[in-house]
C-alpha cells in the first residue's frame, strides 16, 4: 500500500528518489535459446534511460517483457511498486495506465483518424466531455510538433516520422508517469531526430516524465540520456553515464562508443 501511494505523490513536482520500474532476475527463453538470464534493472523516477545492445541481444524482448506482452520464464517486473504478476488485476491495470508506449512504427489504429487515435485512451478511461477530449488531443498534437491539419487525417496518409509523432501524442495523452519508447528516432531524418530529442527533454521538464528508450541513435544517447543500460551477455552488463561506460573494458562497448560514428556523435556534443 505504501508503494502504491508513492506514485500519487510522485507527480506533485517534488522530485523524490524511487524506482519507476524494477526488473529482478528476468529470464527469457525461446525454445532452447536463452535470451535473458537473471537480468536486473532499475529505472529511477525522473530519469531518461537509454537501452542499447547488439542486434539480437533482446532489447525489444526486454521492452515487451516490461509491457507484459511477453511473459518472462522467471523473475519479476515491478511497475510503480506494483508487481505485474502477483498484484490483483485492478492494481495492474492502474499501473498500466501509468505508462505511455510508443511502438516502432507508431502502431496507430488505422481505422481511426489521428485525432481519434490520440483521444482514444481518454474515451476509454475517462469521462471527459467530447469537446474537452478534442481540445486535449489538439494540444498534444501541437505538443509533439504536428500541424493541426493532421488531426483529421488517417494514419495511412502520414509519413513515417509523422506517424511516430502522432504515436507519441497518443502515448502522452493520459499524462503518463513513464514513457517507453522503441527506437523513437529510427527512420527519421537528422533534423526530425534532433527535434524529437529536444521534445523529449521539454516533456521531461514540464511533465516530470520517466523515460526508457531502446535506441541505436548515438546522437540521441548523448543528447538526452542520463544513463545508458548496456544489454550484453544475456543481462544488463552495465548501467551508467556514457562517460563512465567508456572507461569499462568491454570490447563491444568500446567499439560502440569509439567507432567512427560514436566519435562523430561525441564531437557533436562537445
Amino acid at each position: 500500500m505504501t508503494q502504491t501511494a508513492q506514485h500519487n505523490s510522485s507527480r506533485t513536482g517534488a522530485e523524490e528518489a524511487g524506482t519507476a520500474i524494477s526488473l529482478r532476475g528476468i529470464c527469457n527463453r525461446f525454445g532452447s535459446q536463452l535470451v535473458h538470464e537473471h537480468l536486473d534493472l532499475d529505472i529511477q523516477k525522473g530519469e531518461i534511460l537509454g537501452l542499447i545492445g547488439g542486434s539480437g541481444s533482446g532489447k525489444s524482448v526486454l521492452l515487451r517483457t516490461i509491457l507484459g506482452l511477453n511473459r518472462q520464464s522467471a523473475g519479476s517486473v515491478t511497475v510503480m511498486g506494483v508487481n505485474m504478476e502477483k498484484a490483483p488485476e485492478k492494481e495492474r491495470s492502474k499501473a498500466r495506465q501509468q505508462w505511455g508506449v510508443l511502438f516502432q512504427e507508431g502502431a496507430l489504429f488505422s481505422s481511426l483518424s489521428v485525432g481519434e487515435n490520440i483521444a482514444f485512451p481518454l474515451r476509454e478511461f475517462t469521462s471527459v466531455s467530447q469537446q474537452m477530449r478534442e481540445a486535449i488531443a489538439r494540444m498534444k498534437l501541437s505538443f509533439v510538433g504536428l500541424p493541426q491539419d493532421a488531426f483529421d487525417k488517417l494514419p495511412g496518409e502520414l509519413s513515417g516520422g509523422m506517424k511516430k509523432r502522432a504515436g507519441l501524442a497518443r502515448a502522452l495523452v493520459m499524462d503518463p508517469a513513464i514513457l517507453l519508447l522503441d527506437e523513437p528516432t529510427a527512420g527519421l531524418d537528422p533534423l526530425s531526430a534532433a527535434a524529437f530529442d529536444a521534445l523529449l527533454l521539454k516533456l521531461r521538464a514540464s511533465l516530470n516524465l520517466t523515460v526508457c528508450m531502446v535506441t541505436h541513435d548515438l546522437d540521441s544517447l548523448y543528447a538526452v540520456c542520463d544513463r545508458v543500460a548496456v544489454l550484453a551477455e544475456k543481462r544488463i552488463y552495465a548501467v551508467d553515464s556514457i562517460d563512465a561506460l567508456m572507461t569499462l573494458d568491454y570490447p563491444w562497448i568500446q567499439e560502440y562508443f569509439t567507432g567512427p560514428r560514436g566519435r562523430a556523435a561525441r564531437r557533436g556534443v562537445d
Binding site: 485525432g115 478534442e134 481540445a135 489538439r138 494540444m139 501541437s142 505538443f143 493541426q148 488531426f151 483529421d152 521539454k202 521538464a205 514540464s206 511533465l207
Partner: peptide, 15 residues
C-alpha cells in the same frame, strides 16, 4: 511551465 505549455495552437477554431 505546464500552464505555459498547455495551450491550443493560435487561430485554431473549430475543425
Amino acid at each position: 511551465e505546464l500552464l505555459h505549455q498547455a495551450a491550443l495552437p493560435q487561430g485554431q477554431g473549430p475543425a
